[in-house]
Amino acid sequence: MKNWAVRGLSRRRMTTAFPRGEPESVAPWSTIPVKVREGTVLCPADAIHDNSVIAEKCISCGRCSDAFAPGGNVRTVLVRRADGVFRKSFNIFIIDTGSCGACNLEVKALTNPIYDMHRLGIFFTSTPRHADALLVVGVMSENMKEPLKKAYEAMPYPKLVFAVGACAVSGGILGKSIEETLNADVIVPGCPPSPFTILDALLKSREG
């Protein structure tokens, strides 16, 4: 026990200053690119129109790097509907409708001591019956349509739905968006979105 206590203290504070401060580490190509010069660009996700990137479609592949550079901004979420009732405590149920695994790990990372979402009153719950929000990752696979609908129906009101990652938001390059099955209240772009972006989305959705 002493061993673990000493080890914990010797690591000092590792929790991020976010959201009060700026993110300490941002993966450049996880943020939405911005145009910096002229160049030929063939976007595999059809995310570039009129010299700007549609965040919902961008798959963070960097194939536009001849003309675009990472924007570096993690606060790129789109909140269609927020609810202030969740300000003090916010319970989230995660559902994977067809992800590659990366979004799952970035969401899971929110519980590690570095992001520590519990300090902000946000918790994961293991059943939709206790959930305030449904956090959906991955493209809409055929076999997950029914479990997704059932999970949503099992949730009490009021409730929010988050589409997390390019696959859930727009289908990316692999399939269909979840929005054909369920309307999302909060759009979290990125492939996968940075844990900071997901945290930002969770916080903004409680500001209603």
């Binding site: 996880s30 963070s60 990366a102």
Partner: peptide, 19 residues
């Protein structure tokens, strides 16, 4: 694990080597 992901993103531009 998070430390390694951050090192990866710093050197390779993406936490999962995408692209």
């Amino acid at each position: 694990e998070e430390r390694v992901r951050r090192i990866i993103s710093e050197y390779f531009g993406h936490r999962f080597f995408y692209g």
